[in-house]
Write a protein that binds this DNA or RNA. Sequence first.
RNA 1: GGCAGGGUACUCAAGCGGUCAACGAGGGCAGACUGUAAAUCUGCUGGCUACGCCUUCCUAGGUUCGAAUCCUAGCCCUGCCA
Length: 425
Amino acid sequence: MKNVLDILKERGLFEDCTNPEVGEVLSKPGVVYAGFDPTSDSLQAGNLVTILVLSHFQRCGHRVVALVGGATGMIGDPSGKTSERTLLTPEQVEKNLEGIRENLSRFLDFAHPTAPAQILNNHDWLGGFTFLDFLRDVGKHFRMGTMLGRESVRARLASESGMSFTEFSYALLQGYDFLHLFDSEGCRFQVGGSDQWGNITAGTELVRKLRSEEVYGITTPLVCDSAGQKFGKSEGNAVYLDPRKTSPYDFYQFFFRTTDADVVRFLKIFTFLTIDAIAELEQTVREAPEKREAQRRLAEDVTRTVHGEAGLQVALRASEVLFGGSIEGLSAADLAAIFADVPSVELTRGDVVGSPAIDVAAAAGLCQSKGAARRLVQSGGLYLNNVRVAGIETTVQPDDLVDGEVAVLRSGKKNFHLVKVLGDA
RNA sequence: GGCAGGGUACUCAAGCGGUCAACGAGGGCAGACUGUAAAUCUGCUGGCUACGCCUUCCUAGGUUCGAAUCCUAGCCCUGCCA
């Protein structure tokens, strides 16, 4: 079996490690963990990198532990943040943990015969710690000099907003996690984004000090698009893995819209396609970029993994119709099926027929306000049933409703809203 | 506890008595060009019953014909010192 480290390297998933001999150690099955912050009730596309790395580990015969930060999430990781975070309430954390468990179950094999994946919550061991015990048993082993020298701390201290003791202590908690998992699970590896470097080394150092054993940290690059933006945002919103927060259709579209410059890199990172297969796709990007072969493949593979074959099919069908052009000839039932996954609203007939299109767009939630809808029309960006709305005085006519009950509103090229009309005239 | 600085729209950040729904930048949205790409150019970016009206510049009061701008109190943030 291939060494997982080589796989990570050839896929652009390797950034750095705490000790160069990690490759040799990884030639034998071991236990690896990665932490996930419960800041939201669903993981996001950005978390995929870490999740996929864990998956690669599992495929190479290692046992993986996904650590959800029930305790650390209540503190807030200062890494990569420019300002102090808002604290989550225990209830929020608890709720978010549920969603994250659900997300992870789609990627990791919890029923693996020899090395099933596990999800652990660090609140289980950190929650009962008293402050005094923690200071004596853990805090004692952290040196102020090292901690203050950390990039994440230095940056924050130099900034105007400063840093609280709470966030400053974050690294200790995460460091202790590694120690705990080393003791209880025999875990010797931690993976995380490169922004986790400081937190990871806190753990490797703690284990070295207290157990005189070497444990290893491996970081993945922070994935950005070619514009330098952090990966995983679509129209300003995070792309979630939970279908209730980001529909399979939107999820598929997010990946489909990947730019040429990023698509090969993303294929390596986010799919399990072989390097050879990816090289072929790279060829198509060069020779026939307008076909978007690589983007299509990327979107299909990732959507299938996250939302299953059924989710993918819905996304594909919707994409075909929406970008295929006309919606003429489709029945209301067809539209309803296609848009099952696209935002839809139910309005009464009186609110729609005869009303200005801009009012309907606002009522449907396509635009934030009537003013926004008005501006949209004025710039020529509002479409009713794929036909541009000519002016702000345009009203919705009875025969604009497909089968008398459904209309499709669109803002720009890619934002669709389905309007269902309820009730009789 | 002392001293200093500060709280303005999604973010950063001007404004310091009327010309302010509030400069500018970033972001976002839309248009043109395209390949659901990139780059570029253009417009928009508080709400509305819209050539006008309404609600905004931490909160509550006050001064003034008139306040985001001045005063008072309060809340919060930050830095330095102790």
